[in-house]
Amino acid sequence: MHTTPEAVIAILGMALVTIAVKASGLLLADRLPREGFAAAWLRHIPGAVLAALVAPALITGSPAEAVAALATGGVFILTRNLFAAMAAGVAMVYLIRLLIAG
């Protein structure tokens, strides 16, 4: 059980901005835009952030990782199961590396 002041500050900061955003939605409910540019922008943020996170990792990865990414995507589309998709990707990387090494 250990932590550092840096980690505590980061986590408390994350917690504060999260509750602040959630509470603001309720408190400002009557003044927030329900449609139009701002609302559409807010809706698109999570997907765009995840795409920005994944894309560089995918193009800088090895061929083994590219194949594994296809397996991950395929399994997720078929099963809609996050755990199965992750396991398929990990197993694929493991197997290809085993084959190349052996």
Binding site: G47, L53, E65, A69, M86, V90, V93
Partner: peptide, 19 residues
């Protein structure tokens, strides 16, 4: 065990789930 790929795989699946 290939688990270094778990991050990318998870984020990819999370992204696809948002489609």
């Amino acid at each position: 065990w290939g688990l270094d790929f778990a991050f990318t795989a998870t984020f990819l699946a999370l992204l696809l789930g948002m489609w």
